[in-house]
Design a binder for these strands. Structure first.
Length: 555
RNA sequence: UGGCCCAUGGUGUAACUGGCAACACGUCUGAUUUUGGUUCAGAAGAGUCUAGGUUCGAUCCCUAGUGGGCCAACCA
């Protein structure tokens, strides 16, 4: 049977299943380090692992890789859990690498017993120097041949806090001339005096990533340990350690690597984002211009759209940067189906209907969402004085402009056809008001008698002046000027930042939006998708622009 | 003067153990539409990095080259 769209990870799993691996043994895991907020790149790993879990009906663990107390914080544990839940995933077990510290310590002793690890007293710099280069073999440490018993005693004392930070490390004795630099006697334990988010002051030696990850996978019986491409050289260590401490074990987990999701114009480096925040270029980790999960959420991205994005981006082993248009497509696709349509005028200009009764008004209705008629209708007040979008009127229109200009007709959404008659200008000749007439027999949804309005090419949105409410909208442009900041080593923030990445503008919204709830998404008819910002209330009516609508109008 | 990984329309992925390159986004037409949105129909666009080899036949296997990525933290 030919299955299309299967990615290479799924192919590997299917092959394993065909080769006799029981589907009961399938287990995955998402292993973040709690040292910062999750970003769009993590979404790929999350979606990949959890959707594999769903597809194969296998459990997925959440494992915090908390082996470096200097960088980690309990705050991030909570934030990470929140983000994963928001994405709509439920993990099986909530695990911590620190749960395995004792076991890892015992295994380290086992490694020493086998003559495969030694305590090194050299400084970090000395060790680095002796490592050599990829083309030049390393030099063995003077401590490499330290007797096993002495190693055990020193390591035990390290654990007992007998030494100051940095005094000793435990190194695996592998090879000092491997072309894989990671195999050149890697450090597997170091002394750190810091408070760990989970184990507090219980430990003063901490295992390194390589000594932790494979073993943690084994303990949790993870079958397929998926990580990004840059961990490929670590696979040799992953396997070497597992086979060293578990020589008779047959069902060892194994690591497979996929390319990480790099998004154009996005910054995912914690250090760099932190810098942006401290320099005041963005307001915080959830500034909608960033690509952290909390920022995407605040901007109005939905879990569904982000999952879809990851799905469309695919899984492969090529390093690449995905462009923003795909991300925008995904949120439009979702919001088109779900967002309520409302009227809001972003850049208002007054439109007066001269032949409409001055004190008269009427209720106009239109569908909340043409994609979902069952949602019913929106009711808006129509009257003589309206606001329309400034860009919907032109004094000297180009040939293909279908909207309002003197002598031309448009339909006001849900209401009447109007024809512009004249404009009122200020001293500087700016148009401040458009005056028009309306055709009483052109009302939406009514039979129009003799008149035929089918030639009207455009429908524009509007708001009754007396009912319009003031609000604000944050409109964003890309924060960064370069599409691939993440791969740049040093960054000149001055030159990197788009000075016009955020504009806050005053807009007019319809009454029904006055009590919008934070996080709710709307389509401002013809203008794009907007989301009520956090803290939205009567005093503070702010919307974030989530995405623009597609626009095939080309002047 | 190292090792590992990768190379398919503009972009991202697909093509089962080799059988005349498919899907999505984007682009362009046309239709529908009271959102220049949506939807629908259709089109253009690659002969699979290069050179060899194996084969009746190569995107797929082999060799070499080229280009890109990763690796020398007491980070993960």
């Amino acid at each position: 049977m030919k299955e299309k769209g299967k990615n290479f990870i799924e192919s590997i799993i299917d092959k394993d299943l065909n080769n006799g691996l029981s589907s009961q043994k399938l287990r995955f895991r998402f292993p973040p380090e709690p040292n910062g907020y999750l970003h769009i790149g993590h979404i790929k790993a999350i979606v990949l692992n959890f959707s594999l879990g769903q597809k194969y009906n296998a459990p997925v663990n959440l494992r915090f890789d908390d082996t470096n107390p200097i960088k980690e914080d309990a705050l991030y544990i909570e934030e990470i859990k929140k983000d994963i839940n928001w994405l709509g995933y439920q993990w099986d077990q909530e695990c911590y690498a620190s749960d395995y510290f004792e076991q890892l310590y015992q295994w380290a002793h086992l490694l020493i017993d086998k003559g495969l690890a030694y305590v090194d007293s050299q400084s970090s710099e000395e060790i680095a120097q002796q490592k050599g280069t990829p083309t030049r073999p390393g030099i063995p440490s003077k401590d490499r041949s330290r007797p096993i018993q002495e190693n055990k005693e020193l390591f035990t004392q390290m654990k007992e806090g007998k030494f100051e930070q940095g005094r000793y490390v435990l190194r695996a004795k592998l090879s000092m001339d491997s072309p894989n630099m990671l195999l050149r006697d890697p450090v597997i334990y170091r002394i750190i005096y810091a408070t760990h988010p989970k184990t507090k002051a219980q430990w003063c030696i901490y295992p390194m990533y390589d000594w932790t990850h494979g073993q943690s996978d084994f303990i949790e019986q993870v079958s397929h340990s998926l990580c990004s491409l840059e961990f490929m050289p670590h696979r040799a260590l992953y396997n070497a350690f597992l086979t060293a401490i578990l020589p008779q074990e047959k069902d060892l987990p194994f690591q497979r690597e996929f390319s990480r999701l790099n998004v154009a114009y996005s910054m995912t480096s914690k250090r760099k984002i932190q810098k942006l925040i401290s320099l005041g270029y963005v307001d915080g980790w959830d500034d909608p211009r960033l690509h952290t999960i909390c920022a995407l959420r605040r901007k109005g991205y939905t879990p569904q759209s982000l999952k879809r994005f990851v799905e469309l981006a695919g899984v492969s082993k090529r390093s690449k940067v995905i462009g923003l248009p795909l991300l925008e497509y995904c949120i439009r696709e979702d919001l088109n189906l779900h967002a309520e349509r409302v009227m809001a005028v972003i850049d208002p200009i007054k439109l007066t209907i001269v032949n409409y009764e001055e004190l008269y008004s009427e209720d106009i209705t239109f569908e909340k969402n043409p994609q979902k008629p069952e949602l019913g209708h929106q009711k808006v007040r129509f009257s003589r004085e309206l606001y329309i979008e400034r860009s919907d009127f032109m004094e000297t229109p180009p040939k293909k402009f279908f909207r309002l200009s003197i002598g031309k007709q448009v339909r006001l959404k849900g209401a009447y056809v109007v024809q512009a008659e004249s404009v009122i200008q200020d001293q500087k000749d700016n148009v401040v008001e458009v005056r028009c007439i309306y055709y009483p027999d052109s009302k939406s949804g009514q039979s129009n008698g003799e008149s035929d309005y089918s030639h009207i090419k455009a429908t524009i949105h509007w708001l009754s002046v007396q009912d319009a409410i003031d609000a604000k909208a944050n409109v964003f442009d890309r924060l960064l000027l370069s599409d691939d900041v993440d791969s740049q080593k040093e960054t000149d923030y001055q030159e990197l930042i788009n000075p016009n990445s955020k504009k806050t503008i005053s807009i007019k919204i319809e009454k029904s939006l006055a009590n919008a709830i934070e996080g709710n998404q709307y389509q401002f008819l013809r203008m794009g998708y907007f989301t009520a910002d956090k803290g939205f209330d009567k005093e503070n009516r702010i919307f974030n622009k989530t995405a623009t609508l597609r626009d095939s109008y080309k002047p």
